Amino acid sequence: MKKLLKRMTILSIAALSLSFLFPTGAALAAQDNNYENTVTNIAHRGSSGHAPENTIAAYDLAFEQKADYIEIDVQMTEDGELVSIHDTTVDRTTDGTGSVGDFTLEELQNLDAGSWFDSSFAGEKIPTVEEILDRYRGKIGILVELKSPELYPGIEEKLADALIERNLDKPNNNKIIVQSFNHDSVKRFHNIIPSMPVGVLVGHGQADNGEITDEHLEQYAKYADYVNPNKSLLDQDTVDRIHHRALKTWPYTIVDEEWVDLLMDYGVDGIITDYPELMDFR
């Protein structure tokens, strides 16, 4: 009997040792889930699939859904205030008409930015960037997109001033990243606050026959930390070439599970989505 117990103990120890060397399917699945959870979840214009984009309602919901970042679009009013709105006109997302840059802040904030989405959001306002920074800094990351900055001379300096005033220009700055499709604007901002990570947005018009070339990446790597392209511009080779240059990639804009799975298979670093719950890993 003692010999049998001794033999069983030895076998149990051996089995335990093997389990460390050769994980079971369940253990491997757990490891995979741990890897997946390193992919950053960026709520595009807030949780914009469920609430009116670029409003406090959408940002609050993204926070409640445990997104890692909110993405905000930034433009400038006639009187030089920074506000969060995507289109260069207010027509689509408010009850007003006209170009964002032709409104004062007071005039913009008299508009209803929620009813277009659903009557339950009636009265939502266009928020200021300062309001967003004060409300969310240290609580959730903020991916700031400078929208059509060529329309707003000095917008990079205005944004830098707002960040510096709040001590958000330092390394480990509570997760603030600045990006734009206008790469000259990204360079200008980088020159103002070199310590802050910046990203280049890449659409089909900025690719070469649907490809982000090595030449593109070599240029981006001189000043940027992120290459954030339209999702359809990515494949395994492109993601590998981005990573080879020590850059990260957060593709946009994902609205279904199939794209989440595909992009995660490629090894992207983050996913910009209208539906943060898609990143509740299965």
Rank of each mutant, 00 (worst) to 15 (best):
K2V: 02
R7K: 02
L16N: 01
L18W: 03
S19I: 05
F22M: 13
P23Q: 12
T24A: 14
T24F: 12
G25N: 12
A27F: 14
A27W: 15
L28V: 10
L28Q: 14
A30T: 15
Q31R: 13
N33L: 15
N33Q: 14
Y35E: 09
N41K: 12
N41G: 10
H50R: 13
H50G: 13
P52R: 09
I56G: 04
A58H: 08
Y59D: 00
L61A: 03
L61K: 14
L61D: 02
Q65D: 01
I70Q: 04
E71N: 03
D73W: 03
Q75M: 08
G80A: 04
I85E: 06
I85Y: 05
D91R: 04
T93W: 07
D95I: 01
V100T: 00
G101A: 00
T104A: 04
E106N: 11
L108F: 03
D112Y: 05
E124Q: 15
K125Q: 13
E130R: 11
E130I: 09
I132Q: 01
R135L: 11
R135V: 05
K139H: 05
G141N: 01
V144H: 12
E145H: 13
E145N: 14
E145A: 13
L146H: 08
S148D: 14
S148Q: 15
K158V: 06
A160F: 01
E165D: 11
I176S: 06
I176N: 06
V178D: 06
V178F: 06
V178I: 15
F181H: 12
N182S: 14
H183I: 14
D184C: 05
F189V: 11
I192W: 01
P194F: 05
P194D: 05
P194K: 06
M196Y: 02
G199Q: 01
H204P: 02
H204F: 08
H204Y: 09
H204M: 06
E211P: 00
I212G: 02
Y220I: 04
A221S: 13
L233H: 07
L233W: 08
L234C: 06
V239M: 03
H243T: 04
A246E: 14
T253I: 08
D256Q: 14
V260H: 11
D261S: 14
M279H: 08
D280E: 15
F281S: 05
